[in-house]
Design a protein around this nucleic acid. Structure first.
Lengths: 200, 200
DNA sequence: ACTTTAAACGGACCGTAGTCCGGATACATT
DNA sequence: AATGTATCCGGACTACGGTCCGTTTAAAGT
Protein backbone atom coordinates (compact mmCIF):
# COMPACT_ATOMS: atom_id res chain seq x y z
CA UNK A 1 0.00 0.00 0.00
CA UNK A 2 2.75 2.40 -0.96
CA UNK A 3 1.98 5.91 -2.06
CA UNK A 4 2.24 6.03 -5.87
CA UNK A 5 2.89 9.77 -6.12
CA UNK A 6 4.17 11.96 -3.36
CA UNK A 7 4.09 14.96 -5.62
CA UNK A 8 1.06 15.14 -7.89
CA UNK A 9 2.49 15.71 -11.34
CA UNK A 10 -0.05 17.98 -12.91
CA UNK A 11 -1.43 17.10 -16.29
CA UNK A 12 0.42 13.82 -16.52
CA UNK A 13 -1.44 11.40 -18.75
CA UNK A 14 -1.21 7.69 -17.86
CA UNK A 15 0.54 7.14 -21.20
CA UNK A 16 -1.40 5.73 -24.14
CA UNK A 17 -1.59 1.98 -24.36
CA UNK A 18 0.20 0.36 -27.27
CA UNK A 19 -2.90 -1.22 -28.75
CA UNK A 20 -4.67 2.13 -28.58
CA UNK A 21 -1.86 3.85 -30.46
CA UNK A 22 -1.74 1.10 -33.06
CA UNK A 23 -5.48 1.28 -33.65
CA UNK A 24 -5.41 5.05 -33.87
CA UNK A 25 -2.79 4.93 -36.59
CA UNK A 26 -4.64 2.18 -38.42
CA UNK A 27 -7.85 4.22 -38.29
CA UNK A 28 -6.20 7.39 -39.55
CA UNK A 29 -4.61 5.51 -42.40
CA UNK A 30 -7.83 3.71 -43.32
CA UNK A 31 -9.84 6.91 -43.16
CA UNK A 32 -7.34 8.83 -45.23
CA UNK A 33 -7.34 6.11 -47.88
CA UNK A 34 -11.12 5.88 -48.05
CA UNK A 35 -11.56 9.65 -48.20
CA UNK A 36 -9.03 9.88 -51.00
CA UNK A 37 -10.79 7.12 -52.92
CA UNK A 38 -14.48 7.93 -52.42
CA UNK A 39 -14.64 11.47 -51.10
CA UNK A 40 -15.35 12.42 -47.52
CA UNK A 41 -19.13 12.40 -47.85
CA UNK A 42 -19.25 8.79 -49.00
CA UNK A 43 -17.13 7.42 -46.17
CA UNK A 44 -19.10 5.75 -43.38
CA UNK A 45 -17.84 5.02 -39.92
CA UNK A 46 -18.54 1.31 -40.39
CA UNK A 47 -16.40 1.30 -43.51
CA UNK A 48 -13.51 2.98 -41.72
CA UNK A 49 -13.75 0.53 -38.84
CA UNK A 50 -13.78 -2.45 -41.14
CA UNK A 51 -10.92 -1.14 -43.30
CA UNK A 52 -8.86 -0.59 -40.18
CA UNK A 53 -9.75 -4.03 -38.87
CA UNK A 54 -11.23 -2.77 -35.61
CA UNK A 55 -14.68 -2.60 -34.07
CA UNK A 56 -16.91 0.37 -34.56
CA UNK A 57 -16.83 1.27 -30.90
CA UNK A 58 -13.10 1.79 -31.16
CA UNK A 59 -13.52 4.45 -33.82
CA UNK A 60 -15.82 6.46 -31.60
CA UNK A 61 -13.64 5.91 -28.57
CA UNK A 62 -10.69 7.43 -30.39
CA UNK A 63 -12.36 10.25 -32.29
CA UNK A 64 -15.63 10.87 -30.51
CA UNK A 65 -17.68 11.40 -33.62
CA UNK A 66 -17.58 11.44 -37.38
CA UNK A 67 -16.74 15.13 -37.29
CA UNK A 68 -13.94 14.38 -34.85
CA UNK A 69 -12.44 11.80 -37.19
CA UNK A 70 -12.55 14.22 -40.10
CA UNK A 71 -11.00 16.88 -37.90
CA UNK A 72 -8.20 14.46 -37.16
CA UNK A 73 -7.53 13.99 -40.85
CA UNK A 74 -7.73 17.72 -41.39
CA UNK A 75 -5.26 18.49 -38.67
CA UNK A 76 -2.79 15.99 -40.06
CA UNK A 77 -3.19 17.45 -43.51
CA UNK A 78 -2.81 21.02 -42.25
CA UNK A 79 0.39 20.42 -40.36
CA UNK A 80 2.41 20.89 -43.52
CA UNK A 81 0.68 24.15 -44.32
CA UNK A 82 1.22 25.48 -40.82
CA UNK A 83 4.90 24.64 -41.11
CA UNK A 84 5.07 26.74 -44.27
CA UNK A 85 3.58 29.69 -42.42
CA UNK A 86 5.83 29.34 -39.40
CA UNK A 87 9.14 28.56 -41.02
CA UNK A 88 8.69 28.40 -44.80
CA UNK A 89 10.12 30.82 -47.37
CA UNK A 90 8.78 34.39 -47.53
CA UNK A 91 6.48 36.07 -48.23
CA UNK A 92 4.31 33.44 -46.50
CA UNK A 93 6.98 32.51 -44.01
CA UNK A 94 9.05 34.89 -41.91
CA UNK A 95 11.35 37.40 -43.58
CA UNK A 96 8.94 39.51 -45.59
CA UNK A 97 7.33 42.69 -44.25
CA UNK A 98 4.12 42.08 -42.29
CA UNK A 99 1.84 43.53 -44.95
CA UNK A 100 3.21 41.17 -47.60
CA UNK A 101 3.05 38.27 -45.19
CA UNK A 102 -0.56 39.03 -44.45
CA UNK A 103 -1.50 39.18 -48.12
CA UNK A 104 0.37 35.95 -48.80
CA UNK A 105 -1.37 34.38 -45.84
CA UNK A 106 -4.82 35.22 -47.20
CA UNK A 107 -4.00 33.88 -50.64
CA UNK A 108 -2.56 30.67 -49.27
CA UNK A 109 -5.31 30.17 -46.73
CA UNK A 110 -8.00 30.67 -49.36
CA UNK A 111 -6.45 28.14 -51.68
CA UNK A 112 -5.77 25.52 -49.04
CA UNK A 113 -9.26 25.89 -47.60
CA UNK A 114 -10.80 25.32 -51.00
CA UNK A 115 -8.57 22.32 -51.65
CA UNK A 116 -9.74 20.67 -48.43
CA UNK A 117 -13.29 22.04 -48.64
CA UNK A 118 -14.97 18.66 -48.34
CA UNK A 119 -12.95 17.72 -45.29
CA UNK A 120 -13.42 21.11 -43.67
CA UNK A 121 -17.16 20.85 -44.02
CA UNK A 122 -17.23 17.27 -42.79
CA UNK A 123 -15.17 18.31 -39.76
CA UNK A 124 -17.39 21.22 -38.79
CA UNK A 125 -19.20 20.55 -35.57
CA UNK A 126 -16.34 18.75 -33.86
CA UNK A 127 -15.70 20.24 -30.43
CA UNK A 128 -11.95 19.81 -30.61
CA UNK A 129 -11.74 21.30 -34.03
CA UNK A 130 -11.94 23.87 -35.17
CA UNK A 131 -9.92 25.02 -32.26
CA UNK A 132 -6.57 23.63 -33.28
CA UNK A 133 -6.85 24.80 -36.86
CA UNK A 134 -8.73 28.02 -36.21
CA UNK A 135 -6.67 29.20 -33.32
CA UNK A 136 -3.47 28.88 -35.30
CA UNK A 137 -4.73 31.19 -38.04
CA UNK A 138 -6.21 33.61 -35.52
CA UNK A 139 -2.97 33.83 -33.60
CA UNK A 140 -0.96 34.39 -36.73
CA UNK A 141 -3.19 37.15 -38.08
CA UNK A 142 -3.25 38.87 -34.70
CA UNK A 143 0.50 38.79 -34.62
CA UNK A 144 0.79 40.33 -38.09
CA UNK A 145 -1.75 43.02 -37.26
CA UNK A 146 0.27 43.82 -34.18
CA UNK A 147 3.46 44.05 -36.22
CA UNK A 148 1.67 46.42 -38.57
CA UNK A 149 0.89 48.70 -35.66
CA UNK A 150 -2.83 48.43 -36.20
CA UNK A 151 -4.85 50.15 -33.47
CA UNK A 152 -8.07 48.77 -32.08
CA UNK A 153 -9.36 45.40 -30.96
CA UNK A 154 -6.82 43.19 -32.69
CA UNK A 155 -8.62 39.95 -31.90
CA UNK A 156 -11.82 41.18 -33.50
CA UNK A 157 -10.08 42.62 -36.53
CA UNK A 158 -8.36 39.29 -37.05
CA UNK A 159 -11.73 37.58 -36.95
CA UNK A 160 -13.09 40.08 -39.44
CA UNK A 161 -10.32 39.16 -41.84
CA UNK A 162 -10.67 35.42 -41.31
CA UNK A 163 -14.45 35.17 -41.46
CA UNK A 164 -14.71 35.81 -45.23
CA UNK A 165 -12.25 32.95 -45.76
CA UNK A 166 -14.46 30.38 -44.05
CA UNK A 167 -16.06 27.65 -46.10
CA UNK A 168 -19.73 28.62 -45.83
CA UNK A 169 -19.00 32.12 -47.11
CA UNK A 170 -16.72 30.92 -49.90
CA UNK A 171 -19.26 28.29 -50.91
CA UNK A 172 -21.97 30.92 -51.13
CA UNK A 173 -19.82 33.17 -53.29
CA UNK A 174 -18.31 30.58 -55.59
CA UNK A 175 -20.99 27.92 -56.01
CA UNK A 176 -24.12 30.04 -55.69
CA UNK A 177 -23.18 33.54 -56.78
CA UNK A 178 -20.75 32.19 -59.37
CA UNK A 179 -17.93 34.47 -58.33
CA UNK A 180 -14.44 34.04 -59.60
CA UNK A 181 -11.78 33.02 -57.08
CA UNK A 182 -9.53 35.80 -58.37
CA UNK A 183 -12.22 38.34 -57.64
CA UNK A 184 -12.69 37.05 -54.11
CA UNK A 185 -8.98 37.25 -53.54
CA UNK A 186 -8.79 40.82 -54.85
CA UNK A 187 -11.70 41.72 -52.58
CA UNK A 188 -9.93 40.25 -49.60
CA UNK A 189 -6.79 42.24 -50.30
CA UNK A 190 -8.89 45.38 -50.58
CA UNK A 191 -10.41 44.52 -47.22
CA UNK A 192 -6.96 44.15 -45.71
CA UNK A 193 -5.97 47.59 -46.99
CA UNK A 194 -9.04 49.14 -45.43
CA UNK A 195 -8.53 47.37 -42.11
CA UNK A 196 -4.87 48.25 -41.75
CA UNK A 197 -5.32 51.60 -43.45
CA UNK A 198 -6.13 53.50 -40.28
CA UNK A 199 -3.02 52.36 -38.51
CA UNK A 200 -0.99 54.54 -36.19
CA UNK B 1 -57.16 16.47 -77.27
CA UNK B 2 -57.30 20.24 -77.10
CA UNK B 3 -54.14 22.27 -76.68
CA UNK B 4 -53.98 23.34 -73.07
CA UNK B 5 -51.63 26.26 -73.60
CA UNK B 6 -51.10 28.09 -76.86
CA UNK B 7 -48.66 30.43 -75.22
CA UNK B 8 -46.35 28.76 -72.77
CA UNK B 9 -46.71 30.86 -69.67
CA UNK B 10 -43.28 30.75 -68.23
CA UNK B 11 -42.88 29.75 -64.65
CA UNK B 12 -46.55 28.92 -64.20
CA UNK B 13 -46.95 26.22 -61.59
CA UNK B 14 -49.87 23.80 -61.97
CA UNK B 15 -51.32 25.31 -58.77
CA UNK B 16 -50.84 23.57 -55.45
CA UNK B 17 -53.44 21.02 -54.55
CA UNK B 18 -55.67 21.93 -51.62
CA UNK B 19 -54.64 18.96 -49.49
CA UNK B 20 -51.00 19.80 -50.10
CA UNK B 21 -51.49 23.38 -48.93
CA UNK B 22 -53.43 22.25 -45.89
CA UNK B 23 -50.74 19.78 -44.90
CA UNK B 24 -48.01 22.35 -45.39
CA UNK B 25 -49.71 24.75 -43.02
CA UNK B 26 -50.37 22.01 -40.49
CA UNK B 27 -46.71 20.99 -40.63
CA UNK B 28 -45.44 24.52 -40.18
CA UNK B 29 -47.73 25.05 -37.21
CA UNK B 30 -46.80 21.73 -35.62
CA UNK B 31 -43.09 22.31 -36.14
CA UNK B 32 -43.26 25.83 -34.76
CA UNK B 33 -45.08 24.60 -31.67
CA UNK B 34 -42.69 21.73 -31.04
CA UNK B 35 -39.61 23.89 -31.52
CA UNK B 36 -41.00 26.48 -29.12
CA UNK B 37 -41.71 23.80 -26.55
CA UNK B 38 -38.66 21.53 -26.76
CA UNK B 39 -36.01 23.43 -28.67
CA UNK B 40 -35.04 22.79 -32.26
CA UNK B 41 -32.49 20.09 -31.53
CA UNK B 42 -34.99 17.88 -29.72
CA UNK B 43 -37.61 17.94 -32.47
CA UNK B 44 -37.68 14.85 -34.65
CA UNK B 45 -39.29 14.58 -38.04
CA UNK B 46 -41.51 11.75 -36.83
CA UNK B 47 -42.75 13.95 -34.00
CA UNK B 48 -43.57 16.77 -36.40
CA UNK B 49 -45.39 14.40 -38.73
CA UNK B 50 -47.43 12.93 -35.91
CA UNK B 51 -48.26 16.31 -34.37
CA UNK B 52 -49.44 17.53 -37.77
CA UNK B 53 -51.44 14.35 -38.31
CA UNK B 54 -49.70 13.38 -41.54
CA UNK B 55 -47.34 10.66 -42.65
CA UNK B 56 -43.61 11.10 -42.48
CA UNK B 57 -43.22 10.98 -46.24
CA UNK B 58 -45.35 14.09 -46.49
CA UNK B 59 -42.94 16.09 -44.35
CA UNK B 60 -40.06 15.26 -46.64
CA UNK B 61 -42.15 15.83 -49.74
CA UNK B 62 -42.90 19.38 -48.59
CA UNK B 63 -39.59 20.41 -47.08
CA UNK B 64 -37.02 18.08 -48.55
CA UNK B 65 -35.05 17.58 -45.36
CA UNK B 66 -34.88 18.45 -41.74
CA UNK B 67 -32.74 21.48 -42.59
CA UNK B 68 -35.34 22.51 -45.15
CA UNK B 69 -38.10 22.40 -42.57
CA UNK B 70 -36.07 24.49 -40.15
CA UNK B 71 -35.31 26.93 -42.95
CA UNK B 72 -39.04 27.23 -43.53
CA UNK B 73 -39.60 28.13 -39.92
CA UNK B 74 -36.70 30.55 -40.02
CA UNK B 75 -37.99 32.33 -43.09
CA UNK B 76 -41.40 32.76 -41.52
CA UNK B 77 -39.85 34.09 -38.35
CA UNK B 78 -37.60 36.49 -40.23
CA UNK B 79 -40.34 38.11 -42.24
CA UNK B 80 -41.16 40.47 -39.37
CA UNK B 81 -37.53 41.50 -39.02
CA UNK B 82 -37.21 42.14 -42.75
CA UNK B 83 -40.30 44.31 -42.60
CA UNK B 84 -38.64 46.40 -39.90
CA UNK B 85 -35.62 46.94 -42.12
CA UNK B 86 -37.66 47.79 -45.21
CA UNK B 87 -40.33 49.97 -43.72
CA UNK B 88 -39.87 50.25 -39.97
CA UNK B 89 -38.85 53.33 -38.01
CA UNK B 90 -35.34 54.76 -38.40
CA UNK B 91 -32.51 54.32 -37.83
CA UNK B 92 -33.07 50.68 -38.85
CA UNK B 93 -35.75 51.55 -41.34
CA UNK B 94 -35.59 54.25 -44.03
CA UNK B 95 -35.20 57.88 -43.04
CA UNK B 96 -31.87 57.89 -41.25
CA UNK B 97 -28.55 58.58 -42.99
CA UNK B 98 -26.97 55.47 -44.53
CA UNK B 99 -24.16 55.27 -42.01
CA UNK B 100 -26.60 55.21 -39.09
CA UNK B 101 -28.79 52.72 -40.91
CA UNK B 102 -25.83 50.44 -41.47
CA UNK B 103 -24.80 50.56 -37.83
CA UNK B 104 -28.37 49.93 -36.73
CA UNK B 105 -28.55 47.06 -39.20
CA UNK B 106 -25.49 45.36 -37.72
CA UNK B 107 -26.77 45.70 -34.19
CA UNK B 108 -30.19 44.39 -35.07
CA UNK B 109 -28.87 41.57 -37.21
CA UNK B 110 -26.49 40.43 -34.52
CA UNK B 111 -29.21 40.33 -31.92
CA UNK B 112 -31.78 38.61 -34.09
CA UNK B 113 -29.24 36.03 -35.25
CA UNK B 114 -28.35 35.19 -31.67
CA UNK B 115 -32.01 34.97 -30.71
CA UNK B 116 -32.67 32.43 -33.44
CA UNK B 117 -29.27 30.77 -33.15
CA UNK B 118 -30.63 27.29 -32.65
CA UNK B 119 -32.90 27.53 -35.66
CA UNK B 120 -30.21 29.08 -37.83
CA UNK B 121 -27.84 26.27 -37.06
CA UNK B 122 -30.49 23.62 -37.60
CA UNK B 123 -31.33 25.20 -40.95
CA UNK B 124 -27.75 25.31 -42.19
CA UNK B 125 -27.25 22.93 -45.06
CA UNK B 126 -30.62 23.49 -46.67
CA UNK B 127 -30.19 24.18 -50.38
CA UNK B 128 -33.02 26.70 -50.57
CA UNK B 129 -31.86 28.60 -47.57
CA UNK B 130 -29.78 30.38 -46.81
CA UNK B 131 -30.57 32.10 -50.06
CA UNK B 132 -33.81 33.78 -49.10
CA UNK B 133 -32.49 35.03 -45.78
CA UNK B 134 -28.94 35.70 -46.85
CA UNK B 135 -29.71 37.44 -50.08
CA UNK B 136 -31.97 39.93 -48.34
CA UNK B 137 -29.23 41.04 -45.99
CA UNK B 138 -26.65 41.11 -48.75
CA UNK B 139 -28.84 43.25 -50.96
CA UNK B 140 -29.55 45.66 -48.16
CA UNK B 141 -25.92 46.12 -47.14
CA UNK B 142 -24.90 46.57 -50.77
CA UNK B 143 -27.52 49.25 -51.14
CA UNK B 144 -26.33 51.11 -48.05
CA UNK B 145 -22.70 50.89 -49.14
CA UNK B 146 -23.73 52.32 -52.48
CA UNK B 147 -25.57 55.17 -50.78
CA UNK B 148 -22.44 55.87 -48.75
CA UNK B 149 -20.48 56.27 -51.94
CA UNK B 150 -18.10 53.47 -51.08
CA UNK B 151 -15.70 52.63 -53.89
CA UNK B 152 -14.63 49.13 -54.75
CA UNK B 153 -16.29 45.75 -55.11
CA UNK B 154 -19.49 46.47 -53.21
CA UNK B 155 -20.69 42.86 -53.27
CA UNK B 156 -17.49 41.64 -51.65
CA UNK B 157 -17.38 44.42 -49.10
CA UNK B 158 -20.94 43.57 -48.13
CA UNK B 159 -19.90 39.96 -47.63
CA UNK B 160 -16.95 41.08 -45.54
CA UNK B 161 -19.31 42.95 -43.23
CA UNK B 162 -21.84 40.13 -43.04
CA UNK B 163 -19.43 37.24 -42.54
CA UNK B 164 -18.50 38.16 -38.94
CA UNK B 165 -22.21 38.16 -38.09
CA UNK B 166 -22.72 34.54 -39.09
CA UNK B 167 -23.46 31.96 -36.45
CA UNK B 168 -20.27 29.88 -36.61
CA UNK B 169 -18.12 32.95 -36.05
CA UNK B 170 -20.33 34.34 -33.30
CA UNK B 171 -20.42 30.95 -31.62
CA UNK B 172 -16.65 30.75 -31.65
CA UNK B 173 -16.29 34.22 -30.15
CA UNK B 174 -19.02 34.03 -27.54
CA UNK B 175 -19.10 30.40 -26.42
CA UNK B 176 -15.46 29.46 -26.87
CA UNK B 177 -13.45 32.67 -26.53
CA UNK B 178 -15.88 34.03 -23.93
CA UNK B 179 -16.21 37.38 -25.62
CA UNK B 180 -18.80 39.88 -24.58
CA UNK B 181 -21.57 40.68 -27.07
CA UNK B 182 -20.97 44.39 -26.51
CA UNK B 183 -17.36 43.96 -27.46
CA UNK B 184 -18.24 42.12 -30.64
CA UNK B 185 -20.68 44.84 -31.55
CA UNK B 186 -18.11 47.56 -30.94
CA UNK B 187 -15.65 45.64 -33.08
CA UNK B 188 -18.16 45.40 -35.89
CA UNK B 189 -18.79 49.12 -35.81
CA UNK B 190 -15.06 49.71 -35.95
CA UNK B 191 -14.92 47.43 -38.95
CA UNK B 192 -17.65 49.43 -40.65
CA UNK B 193 -15.72 52.64 -40.10
CA UNK B 194 -12.63 51.13 -41.66
CA UNK B 195 -14.51 49.74 -44.63
CA UNK B 196 -16.40 52.91 -45.44
CA UNK B 197 -13.51 55.11 -44.37
CA UNK B 198 -11.88 55.18 -47.78
CA UNK B 199 -15.01 56.38 -49.52
CA UNK B 200 -15.28 59.04 -52.16
C1' DA C 1 5.94 -15.82 -13.68
C1' DC C 2 1.59 -14.36 -11.33
C1' DT C 3 -1.90 -11.03 -9.94
C1' DT C 4 -4.35 -6.98 -10.43
C1' DT C 5 -6.66 -3.33 -12.53
C1' DA C 6 -7.60 0.40 -15.34
C1' DA C 7 -8.06 0.95 -19.99
C1' DA C 8 -9.42 -0.57 -24.46
C1' DC C 9 -12.04 -3.63 -27.50
C1' DG C 10 -15.99 -5.23 -30.35
C1' DG C 11 -20.26 -5.70 -32.12
C1' DA C 12 -25.14 -6.02 -30.91
C1' DC C 13 -28.36 -2.48 -30.27
C1' DC C 14 -30.98 2.02 -30.69
C1' DG C 15 -32.88 6.35 -32.63
C1' DT C 16 -33.41 9.22 -36.40
C1' DA C 17 -33.01 11.08 -41.22
C1' DG C 18 -34.33 9.96 -45.57
C1' DT C 19 -36.41 6.68 -49.46
C1' DC C 20 -39.93 4.12 -51.96
C1' DC C 21 -43.98 2.67 -54.01
C1' DG C 22 -48.82 0.91 -53.86
C1' DG C 23 -52.95 3.19 -52.87
C1' DA C 24 -55.83 7.39 -52.27
C1' DT C 25 -57.45 11.90 -53.89
C1' DA C 26 -58.11 16.52 -55.82
C1' DC C 27 -59.12 18.61 -59.95
C1' DA C 28 -59.97 19.09 -65.00
C1' DT C 29 -62.52 17.46 -68.79
C1' DT C 30 -66.56 15.69 -70.99
C1' DA D 1 -72.19 12.82 -62.66
C1' DA D 2 -68.68 9.99 -64.52
C1' DT D 3 -63.96 9.44 -65.92
C1' DG D 4 -59.14 10.06 -66.28
C1' DT D 5 -54.80 11.29 -64.41
C1' DA D 6 -51.22 13.85 -62.34
C1' DT D 7 -50.26 14.69 -57.89
C1' DC D 8 -50.07 13.59 -53.27
C1' DC D 9 -50.21 10.59 -49.14
C1' DG D 10 -48.65 7.16 -45.74
C1' DG D 11 -45.90 4.18 -43.30
C1' DA D 12 -42.88 0.22 -43.82
C1' DC D 13 -38.06 0.01 -44.92
C1' DT D 14 -33.02 1.20 -45.25
C1' DA D 15 -28.70 3.25 -43.86
C1' DC D 16 -25.95 5.49 -40.86
C1' DG D 17 -24.29 7.81 -36.56
C1' DG D 18 -23.76 6.95 -31.93
C1' DT D 19 -24.22 4.14 -27.36
C1' DC D 20 -23.62 0.31 -24.11
C1' DC D 21 -21.71 -3.24 -21.68
C1' DG D 22 -19.66 -7.84 -21.21
C1' DT D 23 -15.10 -9.39 -22.52
C1' DT D 24 -10.18 -8.89 -23.44
C1' DT D 25 -5.62 -7.08 -22.73
C1' DA D 26 -1.57 -4.10 -21.84
C1' DA D 27 1.39 -3.13 -18.35
C1' DA D 28 2.59 -2.01 -13.55
C1' DG D 29 3.41 -4.10 -9.12
C1' DT D 30 4.91 -8.29 -6.33
Amino acid sequence: MSEPELLPILGQQPRERSDAARNRDALMYAAQTLVARCGADAVTMDAVAEAAGVGKGTVFRRFGSRAGLMAGLLDASEAAWQAEVISGPPPLGPGAPPRERLLAFGRSRLVSTLERAELVQAASGAQTRSYAAYSFTATHVRYLLGELGVRGDIALLATALLAPLEIPILHQQIDIEQMDVERILAGWEDLVERVIGLRA
